[in-house]
């Protein structure tokens, strides 16, 4: 693969990392001044090819454009309204836990949490003591994807294609088996509970982003990292094919 194309693939991976990092941060805690500064200086693409991503970006941008000086308080209140809620029946907010959406009684710390915990441990990861929530929190699952992408990047840069393929496979599987198995349900709740377009937009953006990423990973695995797809003739062409699609992701996170 030529150096230009390598740079493109690297850029795509970096873009995906930044994307997951941003989404993870947005779901983890309330927006603070530092994050607000980043959000207000971002370029929001209008035509990524995914209607949900476009709509999500537009809603977030429109909200921030009309924001007042009390924007941080307003967002903090809406964060609680969206992800914590005020009821105790399990149906009062868009709870960002896989267990809630995959257990019959919508409880936290169920099988899904155990499953992702095993996966984190298998990947050599342990949660920090400062993290007091369940490991199946959406922010952690998104962060896990980011770490896997980072490992892919490292493998790619060191020329270890086998590790690279393995890591991409891990990302695809985790995305399919976990994030996309429950997030669409949470996304429906995210249409109901927040009052600001910021968090409504975040719900749509995340849906579209995950869909896009799954398509990308599938194509990477089917075409570039397929066991027999190693000839010099096929890789460059396909590499740009990915680049053009993943450019959407890269654009999406460009500050």
């Amino acid at each position: 693969m030529s150096s230009e194309q390598e740079i493109t693939f690297t850029t795509v991976l970096r873009g995906r990392m930044a994307g997951y990092q941003l989404l993870s941060r947005l779901f983890r805690t309330e927006v603070d001044q530092e994050l607000l500064d980043v959000l207000t200086s971002m370029h929001y693409p209008t035509a990524t090819g995914n209607a949900l991503v476009d709509e999500g970006y537009r809603m977030i941008r429109d909200y921030l454009s009309a924001a007042d000086s009390n924007v941080l308080t307003e967002l903090a209140v809406d964060f609680v309204r969206a992800f914590i809620g005020s009821g105790n029946n399990g149906y009062s907010a868009a709870y960002p836990y896989e267990s809630v959406y995959t257990s019959p009684k919508r409880l936290m710390m169920q099988d899904a949490r155990d499953e992702v915990l095993v996966l984190y441990r298998a990947a050599g990861l342990a949660k920090r003591d400062s993290w007091k929530e369940g490991e199946d929190h959406l922010a952690l699952e998104l962060e896990f994807e980011r770490i896997l992408i980072e490992r892919t990047l490292t493998a790619w840069e060191t020329g270890d294609e086998a590790s690279c393929r393995r890591s991409i496979l891990q990302q695809r599987n985790f995305l399919e088996d976990h994030l996309l198995s429950w997030y669409p349900m949470m996304a429906k709740d995210l249409k109901k509970f927040p009052r600001t377009d910021f968090y409504r937009g975040l719900g749509r953006l995340t849906s579209g982003y995950l869909q896009n990423d799954l398509e990308l990973l599938n194509e990477l695995l089917d075409e570039i990292f397929a066991d027999d797809a190693t000839s010099e003739a096929t890789i460059p062409e396909l590499a740009f094919g990915e680049a053009s699609k993943t450019a959407q992701l890269k654009e999406a996170v460009r500050p």
Partner: peptide, 10 residues
């Protein structure tokens, strides 16, 4: 399309 993409800014 990418070449003509428009970005929104805050």
């Amino acid at each position: 399309a990418r070449q003509e993409d428009e970005f929104l800014v805050v």
